[in-house]
Write a protein that binds this DNA or RNA. Sequence first.
RNA 1: GGGCGCGUGGCCUAGCCAGGAUAUGGCGGCAGCCUCCUAAGCUGCAAGUCAGGGGUUCGAAUCCCCUCGCGCUCGCCA
Length: 569
Amino acid sequence: MTVRDDFRQEVERRVREALRSLGCDAAFEVEAPSTGVADLAVPCFTLAKELRKAPQAIAEELRGLVPCEGPICAVESVNGYLNFFIDQDVLVRETLKEICEQGGDYGRLPFKGVKVNVEHTSINPTGPIHVGRARNPIIGDTLARCLERCGYEVETEYYVNDVGKQVVLLTWGMGNVPAGDALETEKADHRLVHHYRAANKMMEEDEAVRDEIAAMLQRFEEGDEEVISTVREAVEVMLGGLRQTLDRINVSLDRYTWESQFIADGSAKEVVERLKRSPYCGEEGGAHYLELKDFGIHGKNTRFTFTRRDGTTLYTTRDLAYHLDKFRRADRAVDVLGEDQKLGSQQLIAALEILGCGTKPEPMFYSFVSLPEGKMSTRRGTVVHLDDLVEEAVSRAYEEVRKRREDLSEERMREIAEVVGVGAVRYNIARVQPEKKMVFRWEDAMNFDGNSAPFLQYSHARACSILRKAGDFAPAVDESLLTDEYERRLVAALSLFPEVMRECGENKRIHMLPSYGHELASAFNQFYAAVPVLSSGELRDARLTLVDCCRVVLRSTIETLGLVALEEM
RNA sequence: GGGCGCGUGGCCUAGCCAGGAUAUGGCGGCAGCCUCCUAAGCUGCAAGUCAGGGGUUCGAAUCCCCUCGCGCUCGCCA
């Protein structure tokens, strides 16, 4: 329970009591005014009917009935609103005390004992990750970090597609097409995509190749172990390249689950058998489908086909087996998916219901990234690879560091540039709501000013710098020594952290975190510019304590975003 | 055509789920600030039909309906 929670409860209790004394039991809202005219407010308009009085009069009357006690230091009546102000001394004292005691655990919720599986990335292993798909690992990884801070036991997972025509084609290409202009030194994913593209082209142009691939696919479907393991090996190599990219942006998955597993262990077939017994099942020419028009699926085709004519399973059938498997391992399953998966996900959920699965996956969709000139297209070669974006961001960050820090060693400058460049890229993706479409622009993607990762990292480095110069000091929480308006505003920002964290994790709204980080860093930078710390005499220890608390919360914010909190930059 | 999502100053974006007071920030623009803890910073100014229309309500960026624009989707592909 934070000071702010306590304050809100107190406001609710006092208003309820005041209303009761007027013989009114009506419900009321407690809201945080957007304009900052108060810390909390109760609009009295809804009470007007019940009390048969003007809202203004009600607010006036309630004001006289609510005592200023505990965390409530003032109550005002303005335009039909009952405005409440939190006692600044209490806020400063309790917030800083909590941060000093809990350190990096400030804002962390107690362990819930609930397992959440977060499936993210799951990119088809046929080529390097491009910036459109990059939303997936960044959203997924950030969400996982938020959930973890909210007390969940989190496992992240990549569902590897090693089944089907695309990966067969890749495998065929690796065995039958020369690498062409691919360099041995290239990352595996960039090297292998040459084979994939060449194989694609050959298949389109050459009927013999088409037949060869069809035969290979046929053998795969029949469970030919040699083909299956060759494909798996090819995908492993590709995946190695993808993992390097993910590592670089500080994303690591706890688990990789292979799609072929659900064919091999018979669980996909079992799903087929169970679905065939469902009353929603139909058949056409040997292919089986579910009729899902009773499950909220609209459109001209409400059929969801789960076997081919020859009885083999389809992607979504395997995905069903996969989700049943996930629910054996976790209490909740979050799927981070591109918006093109919306219908598929809906069908999946309906089919799981038909299978009697009591828990539903929680899909989280993100919209696609386009280029100013239109859609990204592998075919037209207009994709921007995440590797290139990161490389470019890091090299720009390096120029920035070199410009201002001639004193640092080359190695240190490289380290800082890496962390700043990667951070900028992650931040600029994490800061926008997943469902909003993004247009990729280099200058936005690598933004280092204002609402950006470097802004947060810089504030953190500044705090560290002050603390470094201060040396040893006696930490002291003394609200009577922190009365400057910049100090108070900074503490107010710090006190918001727990509820922001809750919002990010519990409601899966991770884009609130960058926005909060900017608010906190901004409050710190304003404080930094206006309030001296090291030369502040008897206020020094109190201010150093505040700076240290700020350092702690900035760091938690930065790290929950999957970025690195630098001590200098 | 049906379904789903999005539309907020020149550009990007918060607020929408749980309607409430003068709509949040950033970029860019203009004008200032380093004899003081890192100027990747700070201060100020200009800039808005919250896509358009209707409805519900004491009150709508927020809820409902219609229209327009954009994206995704409607495979025995994955």
